[in-house]
Amino acid sequence: MKPFQYLRPKTIAEAISMATDYPEAQYIAGGTNLVELMKRGIASPSKLIDINHLPLKKIEHRYDRLRIGALALNSDVAKHKSVLSRQPLLAQALLAGASGQLRNMATVGGNLLQRTRCSYFYDLALPCNKRKPGTGCGAEAGINRTHAIFFAGNGFGGNEKSSCIAVHPSDMCVALAALDTEVVINGTSGERRVPLKDFHRLSTLQPELDTNLQPGELVTAIEVTDNAFAQHSHYLKVRDRASYAFALVSVAAALQMDGGRIWDARMALGGVAHKPWRYWAIDLMLRGQAPSEKLFREVAEHEMQSARATTQNAFKIKLTSNAIVAALKAATGIS
């Protein structure tokens, strides 16, 4: 690990000013990902700005929305009363991720900003456009069983100097994408809000960038507007072992039902793209319909038409389709 200077700002404004003044500085919260990246030499900030003591831990429901401070711990969010009653999908997704120990350290902001788990990204001896732009994507013709099937490879990622088929590893973000979450960001020029769908980037052209955060900006909270999905939402995670594994595929399904019919539907997929993959057409396809396995199969296959496999992950196309069906069945309670 490269030696670094440790800074401890007293206020949010001071933190932002430090990060703006020192371009090689990085914020640190739980550190569950960043410390590992530093140990391996993948991140080598000259200064670490410790934000853990800033007043950003609060979870509260006000007016029409749930606001979760960026420093709220994953484990605290997952068991918070308002989260469980209003956005159970988020709690399910959080509990599907990492381990109890990690969730006790990891923050909501850190979860948004965690980096891919692609093996090529983590090994300095191997090519990786995300870690070192221009070196090529090691995974594209290598070990890519767990890699992206949407908007990845096969020309989607630009040329070989900029392609990247890594996936975003978060479970939480998949649920947040389905729930139309807003990310609250503070910078030198004040506060701005970015819909989660625009927070993370696809890998095109600049795979080294995971998000649209600007230098110095600090995520301070996320906000989820009230919805009517609590009764019919389900987070399904398919993985290589029963727990403590990144998703091969995950599905966050949020439906509103009445009188045996679906009236509103949101869905996002994890483990399939460089960012949480929002299935935009699902509302159109399900609205007004009665749930059935046949319908869900049609819906699943529709979205998979645009999926493309690389050399080892063709199974993920069928697996994602099956997972969508399974998640919709669970959310609607049909067997």
Partner: peptide
Amino acid sequence: SEMDHRFGRYVTTDFASYHIPVHAD
């Protein structure tokens, strides 16, 4: 343990990618 044979190098070199059973298994 998966190797990228273009490089003759293992790529599953941590517990995130080399899976052993956890309690839930």
